[in-house]
């Protein structure tokens, strides 16, 4: 027997991706984790161990902001789970209906906002909702509901929910597409077999289709989770780095940005910024682990 030859071509093909990924993802990630353990004293970088984390969680000046941002982040995520994903699933179910006309048109129209820049989305919605030039107050007036209008983005109690809904509007195309693909992959035979047993219409969706697309819903949930906890752009584009009013829209991303790069008279502190980034990394890691080991392994998969 001849010893199998070492397959050099595998290395060659892997190399570009591994190198690029290492250079722009893995190295910066670990360097950020490392930076979180340092601080600057008299213009010299010194190792301080976990001191930055003690400040972040122990000093009320920092911890209040951190918990506020984390709480806002959970609310942001909650709104997405509550609104974006059910709407995405419902739209996908409607679009996958074989007798729906112009399905491709609707699909594209709903997906288009996803590819727009956050800056455009933030700016456009700020204008739409503007109390001065916006069309939202006028539209409400036209149907006699002007009293429902409020300057939502400027009110502490509404601003975060408003931004979360804008983000939902932007990204509802993603669950739509994934669920749509999953629904299309359900074989006709399964549905027909159900029909023979008397399961049609809405019952077919709840009893046959939904269980079959559960793994996709799981994937969407975890994508939403990671996306929301890394969110930054929309809040920054719409409300600025101070995430007003009164930090009511401050999420971990804007908190990290402000700390790392500084803002107005606040000088940037890369080390505290890295500590926050590390905390974000930890939160996302825990969330993903809960999903992978707690939920995904229990989902039943069906092979056709």
């Amino acid at each position: 027997m001849q010893k199998p030859r070492f397959k050099w071509h595998i290395l060659v093909f892997l190399a570009p991706a591994v190198l690029v990924y290492t250079a722009i993802m893995i190295f910066p990630l670990f360097n950020t984790l490392r930076l979180a353990l340092f601080s600057e004293v008299d213009q010299v970088r010194v190792f301080v161990g976990l001191e930055n984390f003690r400040t972040l969680f122990g000093d009320p000046n920092w911890s209040e902001q951190f918990w506020n941002a984390l709480g806002n982040n959970f609310w942001f995520f909650f709104i997405h789970m509550l609104v974006q994903n059910p709407i995405g699933i419902a739209l996908a179910a409607i679009l996958s209906h074989p007798r729906l006309r112009y399905a491709a048109l609707y699909r594209s129209a709903i997906f288009v906002p996803t590819i727009l820049s956050f800056v455009i989305i933030g700016f456009a919605w700020k204008l739409i909702l503007s109390p001065i030039w916006g069309i939202a107050p006028d539209m409400l007036k036209a149907i006699g509901l002007k009293s429902l209008y409020a300057p939502w983005l400027g009110k502490e109690e509404y601003a975060l929910t408003t931004l979360a809904l804008i983000s939902v509007w932007q990204f509802v195309g993603i669950p739509l597409m994934l669920i749509y693909a999953a629904l299309l992959s359900i074989p006709e035979e399964v549905l027909e077999a159900g029909e023979v047993d008397g399961i049609t219409g809405a019952a077919a969706f709840w009893k046959i289709k939904l269980p079959l697309i559960l793994p996709s819903i799981g994937i969407i949930s975890i994508l939403t989770f990671v996306g929301n906890f890394n969110a930054f752009d929309l809040i920054y584009a719409a409300q600025g780095a101070l995430a007003g009013p009164d930090f009511s829209t401050d999420i971990l991303g804007t908190f990290m940005y402000r700390t790392f790069f500084g803002f107005q008279l606040q000088l940037g502190d890369p080390h505290m910024g890295s500590a926050i980034a590390t905390a974000m990394f930890g939160i996302i890691l825990i969330g993903v682990c809960i999903y992978l080991f707690g939920i995904q392994t229990r989902l039943r998969r069906y092979q056709f």
């Binding site: 909702l129 001065i132 107050p137 400027g154």
Partner: peptide, 16 residues
Amino acid sequence: LGDGYEAQTYPDSQNI
């Protein structure tokens, strides 16, 4: 400050 000043931005004020 006028209706909805809570959501009025700096350029809005300049323009008004």
